[in-house]
């Protein structure tokens, strides 16, 4: 039963992935002109000159003279069959050289934020639902609303400002200077852990607030369900009853929310990274978009989207595992 469900979900993903690749490539094609135009105008602004033949050569080399559909076809087949994401004009390196490290860190931050969000939202949500309309509930609700109202980047700015004025230090970056370019090691990993919590809190705040509200509303509903009464009539203690029945049921919508939280966390990571200047996709994507470094920008958007869709799939499977009613449908 379960495998049937998994297969169906996997098959349905194929058109989604295809659509993502088209949209990603389409978006970076939207601006008038291409990277060469930007490149030439920068060159000319610096007083340089470039001949028509050179331009033609460059166009040929980067296949910019071919129709968009052909460009897309070559790009996507390159990715699927050779893992080749194209050439970054900006970095003068293959896109995949720039891509993976940064995508990896982006997802490390996003996943860490996801864990943070759930670990914080769960107990608060349960507390708020059980002690509905208590002082604590009101306090958390207000904090939650506040968290929803403060944009990520503003929170980042305030934290940076606070750290700078009160501690005289900068909180940007994911690594200490000595580890910035170092190869991966345990020491570098621990250094990452020491830095990652600041962006994680910044990125996670809004989602945490949202999830607390979801947990609170769902659990408050479940608490009034007849099966709770059945369990109580059986003689189950209140604490055990709460965790085993209503919380277990309220967990389903809570978990299914992963699919919606992940995209927003990835979004939050992008913008927060730009403010905090983290070595993730955000800053590079912004520059690539501005300079029309199309393969780089397109690949970034595509990979971020695809990984998010996969994350959503995982959360759906998790939900099916949690809830027999979905699995047997």
């Amino acid at each position: 039963m379960l495998s049937n469900y998994v297969i169906r979900r996997l098959v349905f993903m194929i058109p989604t992935l295809l659509a993502i690749s088209i949209v990603s490539f389409g978006i970076v094609q939207l601006p008038p002109g291409d990277f060469l135009d930007t490149y030439i105008s920068t060159l000319e602004a610096d007083g340089g000159d470039i001949s028509g033949i050179e331009i033609e050569n460059l166009k040929k080399r980067y296949r910019l003279d071919e129709p968009v559909v052909v460009q897309y076809w070559q790009w996507i087949t390159g990715i699927v069959f050779a893992g080749d994401f194209g050439w970054s004009f900006q970095y003068q390196r293959p896109v995949s050289d720039v891509l993976w490290d940064r995508v990896g860190l982006t997802f490390a931050i996003s996943l860490a934020s996801l864990v943070f969000v759930y670990v914080v939202a769960f107990p608060i949500g349960v507390y708020s639902a059980v002690k509905k309309y208590s002082v604590g509930d009101y306090a958390f609700t207000f904090l939650g609303f506040l968290g929803l109202a403060i944009p990520n980047f503003l929170l980042a700015l305030i934290l940076m400002y606070g750290a700078l004025t009160f501690f005289g230090q900068s909180v940007g970056g994911l690594f200490s200077p000595e580890f910035a370019e170092a190869p991966w090691s345990w020491a570098r990993f621990w250094d990452l852990m020491a830095h990652i919590w600041i962006p994680v809190i910044i990125i996670g705040t809004a989602s945490t607030a949202g999830l607390i509200r979801i947990m609170r509303a769902n659990l408050a509903d479940e608490l009034n369900k007849p099966y709770v009464e059945t369990a109580r009539a059986k003689g189950v203690s209140e604490g055990r009853l709460l965790m085993r029945y209503p919380v277990r049921l309220a967990l389903n919508p809570f978990v299914s929310q992963v699919g919606w939280e992940l995209p927003s966390l990835v979004s939050g990571a992008a913008i927060t990274s730009i403010v905090l200047n983290l070595p993730t996709t955000g800053p590079v994507l912004l520059i690539a978009l501005k300079s029309q470094d199309m393969y780089l920008a397109g690949s970034f958007i595509m990979i971020l989207s695809i990984l998010t869709v996969i994350g959503t799939l995982v959360s759906d499977l998790l939900l099916a595992w949690l809830d027999p009613r979905i699995r047997y449908k």
Binding site: P226, Y227, E229, T230, K234, G235, R248, P324
Partner: peptide, 18 residues
């Protein structure tokens, strides 16, 4: 549940679905 037990009206919603 030991000395006094109870059964309810809606057997579907009175049993935990999961």
């Amino acid at each position: 549940g030991k000395e006094i037990s109870m059964i309810f009206q809606e057997p579907m919603s009175s049993l935990s679905p999961v």
